[in-house]
Design a protein around this nucleic acid. Structure first.
Lengths: 346, 346
DNA sequence: ATTTAGCAATCGAATATTAAGAGTGCTAAA
DNA sequence: TTTAGCACTCTTAATATTCGATTGCTAAAT
């Protein structure tokens, strides 16, 4: 494609505009970037470049006589081709290290700590979603009786996830029944992905015993609920920070934002689609009509060895401080994965 | 107090103004309520009453030449003295009944269902908080080992609460140690309030055995975390609905709202302070500077017999449809408590 | 004594007018 | 290829003007 052949100065101009706009949230004029940002030309020269950058769709003009604003395409080019890595300050590094030094009992603890820290440092809203249930291998299923008519089911997976739920019955359940449940479910499901615990599988397991319909139904229902919840669980952090951004002065944007946070499906889809081993950047489409159009999302996968432990991400305005966010993410990502692998090696 | 001696017409005028304002969100003029709302006077007469109602602080004037708006004091008088109960429609009753017919395994299930339903019917944001830990009696503490170095603690309370957490150790823990833990904690804590599980108590218990410091510390930490989480747990439902309200056009109000939702302490304080056996209404103070000032909160306690199962409430603009909200709450409250008592009787 | 009609006065909100200024695009010169 | 110069565009802010809703008060009516 022609448009990718930006000459050196045009690249600098685009970069300067994006960075200036990230800082000020105001349209950028030719004069504002004719000096500085590694440029030293007259505003007329810059103007020419800007016109061409607009032609090929990297810039937009809010109105005929005001400065330029990066288009979604412009942001994408900036992120993928022009972004120069930011360095974290020593304080930031110290802070992250401190916050991540949590005692990890469940994988959620670490995820939570990372999410909170990310939000605190960037001041954007952060989100974490767990690994999909088909990526998690069951290590153990344990039925524990809590009194005659109450049972707790605990499922432990290879990702360190421990999920449990309570089941109540209208009739008594005996210790030997509990033992049988433990045997049955473990032999059938250990080593299988979590998503395999579905209704058909449970019915199949129950076909081998003849418990009352009430008991079976209650167990199947609750176990399915675990899997379901696991696939739809989203952790949100620092949503209120976003309301300080200038773009939130527009009620439309604010509303899109709360709608976005509420649209779990849309969110899950984005969060589950990124590459592992990399920072993924989604930039809202200018002429999209979804809730996403005003926002960008940056995510990374959190892994242990080659196991997917879920995705952590950030939601902010398209005018986001990409350099900073990506730098923080890279650092946190590295740190987490280091910790995980140390732990694994023990 | 003099001001409480409103003559009949003034009461009607105040009521009409509040109701009109609830509907329209616009200042109410004398003309708008001179006919209807059980009134039939000239606007001049109403005007006189309005002036007096303003004098005694029940009404405010946004500016000299526009209609009146209820003050916080006016709302309070309206709610406590003038409110006429609303009736639910048959559909609403049917809907609530359907939604509350959930299988309750944990008390949270019912609370969640009630909270969601309340939000769906009123379109306001709803909140639920559990009973404080000092109101919950421990029925059982159970340690369950999940592999050599992982333990799960389950605490069951008289409110139907089942809380659990995972503890990981750096060293092995034996079956007999687990048995001892079970005995020790149960004999010491069964029948005691949940809040009694604090650091001193745990340390006292541990003084009777000599487990490694690592094990003891891990257990104490995690158990305390359960209690702590229980006291700070807030369920939020339908927050995004609020963004459709006209008052949210003001960015200041919107920001106060997200801040309020984030200020868990402030929230918990209000939610934990209401009377049992009643619907409690808090109306934000006009000249308060807290996040609350633009909002009202209506709560009720959710009980089983005389046990407090927590508080469910609604947060909305001061211009809230009190009649509707209170009617729905009363119905849901009655329904829940019926169900609970039926269950208890079984 | 209460209520109401009538009316001047007030003030906000909407609309129009103007002025100022920021920024562009283009042309012609450097 | 770059730049100075300048006319043109369009936004924003400031100012003025109009319009109408609503009030408060007074004097008349009930």
């Amino acid at each position: 494609m022609k448009k990718d052949n930006l000459d050196d100065r045009k690249k600098k101009v685009l970069q300067a505009i994006v960075e200036e706009y990230i800082n000020t949230a105001e349209p950028v004029s030719s004069g504002a970037i004719s000096k500085g940002h590694g440029l030293d030309y007259s505003s007329a020269t810059i103007r020419n470049d800007m016109a061409q950058l607009e032609n090929i769709g990297f810039l937009d003009k809010p109105h005929t006589s005001s400065g330029r604003v990066p288009s979604a395409k412009g942001y994408r080019y900036y992120v993928h081709e022009l972004l120069k890595e930011d360095n974290l300050s020593l304080e930031e590094i110290k802070y992250i290290q401190k916050k991540l030094k949590v005692k990890v009992n469940e994988i959620e603890d670490l995820t939570k700590a990372a999410t909170t820290t990310l939000s605190e440092i960037t001041h954007y809203t952060t989100v974490a979603v767990g690994p999909k249930s088909d990526k998690q291998i069951i290590e153990e299923i344990k039925f524990v009786s809590l009194g005659q008519r109450m049972l707790m089911v605990v499922i432990v997976t290879d990702t360190g996830l421990v999920k449990e739920t309570i089941i109540k019955f209208d009739e008594d359940i005996t210790d030997s029944q509990v033992d049988t449940l433990n045997n049955l479910f473990n032999t059938r499901l250990k080593g299988k992905p979590l998503s395999k615990i579905d209704k058909p599988m449970a019915e199949y397991i129950f076909s081998e015993v003849n418990y009352s319909v009430g008991i079976m139904k209650a167990i199947i229902e609750q176990i399915n609920k675990i899997v379901d919840e696991e696939d739809n669980n989203i952790i949100l952090e620092g949503a209120k920070n976003s309301f300080d951004l200038p773009e939130f002065k527009s009620m439309k944007v604010a509303k899109n934002f709360v709608n976005l946070l509420d649209a779990k499906d849309e969110m899950l889809q984005i969060f589950n689609s990124g590459d592992a081993e990399d920072i993924n950047v989604y930039i809202g489409d200018d002429d999209d009509n979804s809730n996403l159009k005003d926002f960008s999302i940056i995510t990374f996968k959190h892994t242990m060895g080659d196991k997917d432990l879920g995705t952590i991400g950030i939601i902010g305005p398209k005018r986001m401080d990409y350099a900073k966010v990506i730098a923080v993410m890279k650092y946190i990502s590295k740190k987490i994965n280091e910790d995980n692998n140390k732990k694994e090696g023990m």
